[in-house]
């Protein structure tokens, strides 16, 4: 699997996700500066977490127009897998690759803690190592994580199997909603399920020393599907 991580000014999880990918693939991961418009042939493009452009204007709004993003949009349309984590998710919605938007958390606080998310779809390049309905414990760290979309868009996402993850209280437990997200949504796919955006940080849960390694399932899924 040839993977690249895009580095924007203000990205701060770029190296973490590189480590997580290299742990899963045992292959070097390319780091691409956002100002580069050319990309090598790739199987996976990752937009990492952080605070690109200081979250000025709106989270992800400036990064969505970085030179590299024209190429990312093009590759995504060709079916190349694109993963956006946290700020990467915000960038994907601002770039129009995923529906909806991320608003400030309903409680107006930055939330940094472990949450549980339920895997809604297992037949995807991102989640094939998970059972549908299984629960992962992964950290969130965001101020603007409230997923919003119009009711008809939400209905369509649910009907077409584009909801990737939902917040929940734990295995075999009820729903949860740390940030006010519509329908407890923590992550969504595009229509082809080749683009995933999620607020939780799987790359921060890939080693027992992180306090958990549930995030590995995502990277293992990608290797299984794309290697």
């Amino acid at each position: 699997m040839k993977a690249a991580v895009v580095v924007f000014p203000g990205s701060n999880c770029d190296r973490d996700v590189k480590v997580a990918l290299e742990q899963a693939t045992s292959k070097p991961v390319h780091m691409v500066w956002h100002g580069e418009a050319e990309l090598p042939k790739l199987d996976l493009i990752v937009l990492p977490g952080g605070f690109s452009y200081g979250d000025y204007l709106r989270s992800g709004a400036m990064a969505a127009h970085s030179p590299v993003m024209g190429t990312v949009v093009e590759r995504a349309k060709q079916g190349v897998a694109v993963l956006g984590i946290c700020n990467g998710f915000q960038i994907l919605t601002e770039a129009g690759l995923l529906p909806g938007a991320l608003l400030p958390n309903a409680g107006l606080k930055f939330i940094c803690r472990d949450v549980h998310v339920r895997v809604e779809q297992s037949q995807t390049v991102f989640t094939n190592a998970c059972e549908a309905g299984s629960v992962l414990r992964i950290p969130i760290a965001h101020h603007d994580g409230q997923y919003f979309a119009d009711a008809d868009v939400l209905d369509r996402l649910e009907g077409e199997g584009q909801v990737a993850f939902r917040y929940c209280q734990g295995p075999a437990a009820g729903p949860a909603n740390p940030n006010g997200s519509a329908r407890d949504i923590a992550g969504v796919f595009n229509a082809g399920r080749t683009v995933l955006g999620l607020m939780p940080h799987p790359e921060r849960a890939v080693d027992p020393l992180h306090g958990g390694s549930d995030g590995r399932a995502l990277f293992q899924s990608l290797v299984a599907a794309l290697a």
């Binding site: 919605t93 938007a101 919003f148 979309a149």
Partner: peptide, 9 residues
């Protein structure tokens, strides 16, 4: 339309 506003929200 292109940058200053996100017309989704």
């Amino acid at each position: 339309r292109r940058l200053l506003a996100n017309t989704v929200i």
